[in-house]
Design a protein around this nucleic acid. Structure first.
Lengths: 121, 121
DNA sequence: GTAAGTAGTATACAAAAGGATAGTGATAAA
DNA sequence: TTTATCACTATCCTTTTGTATACTACTTAC
């Protein structure tokens, strides 16, 4: 048997420390709906029902839940206008926009991956 | 009420097209175990039981399943040595290493996010 | 009075992801 | 003969994630 390539020395502690923030980032984007919601908001501020229309298939419950999560992560700002009927506007924060580069990186890799997987059929 | 910022015109088709590859990339890294497995393999080639030891808490079933998925995506190479007992070596492919930049981007964002969330208490 | 639009919540359920535990078959060491 | 290592697989169970459907409260328009 070929000799297994020597592993660089590293403790699991070091790895864990480097994994946790990656997980945080993944968590912010994970699930079925966060990505479409974020991308929808990248094109402009939206009201609840507008997002619901633009993200096909999402239920009110999911939209409400995801928006609450995004808000608690400072990625989305919720502004209530006490007009009648009450209108709530959601917008990406400055910080939310900082995800654009992350999403772009993922997209670039994903595009290459699609090509690769298609060639391999 | 403040006027809602005008949304740039865009079709859902365009968005979907740009979301799909992002999802592909996320999928490759999603779940509880893929990331630690990939990172473990970034430090060198490993046998099944070595990975099982280095990724605390993973069961054989999960490890086996995740490795199969990673292999089917060309990210991991599986090499069988028909020694006795049989030994199987897993290694990151060249392509698997292309995830490093993606993971780094996620980590950088995640590190900033951790700081931010800590300050906010 | 009834429908429609505002922004959601409540309850119950189904599907997907993951965990616990045991077993496979070959061999070698005690 | 029992135990251990290698790399898994099989079965069942729990937890998490997401869906379906109905409902709230308020006001305007028909």
């Amino acid at each position: 048997m070929e000799k297994t390539k020597e592993a660089k020395p590293h403790t699991w502690g070091e790895c864990t420390k480097s994994i946790l923030p990656v997980r945080d980032a993944l968590e912010v984007l994970s699930g079925k709906w966060k990505l479409p919601i974020i991308i929808s908001l990248m094109f402009g501020n939206k009201r609840f029902s507008q997002i619901a229309k633009e993200v096909p298939g999402i239920t009110d419950k999911m939209l409400s839940k995801e928006l609450r999560e995004l808000e608690s992560n400072d990625l989305v700002k919720r502004t209530v206008y006490d007009s009648i009927p009450v209108v709530v506007e959601y917008s990406l924060t400055e910080y939310g926009h900082s995800l654009e580069i992350v999403i772009k990186t993922l997209r670039d890799w994903g595009v290459a991956h699609r090509k690769r997987m298609m060639v391999a059929e």
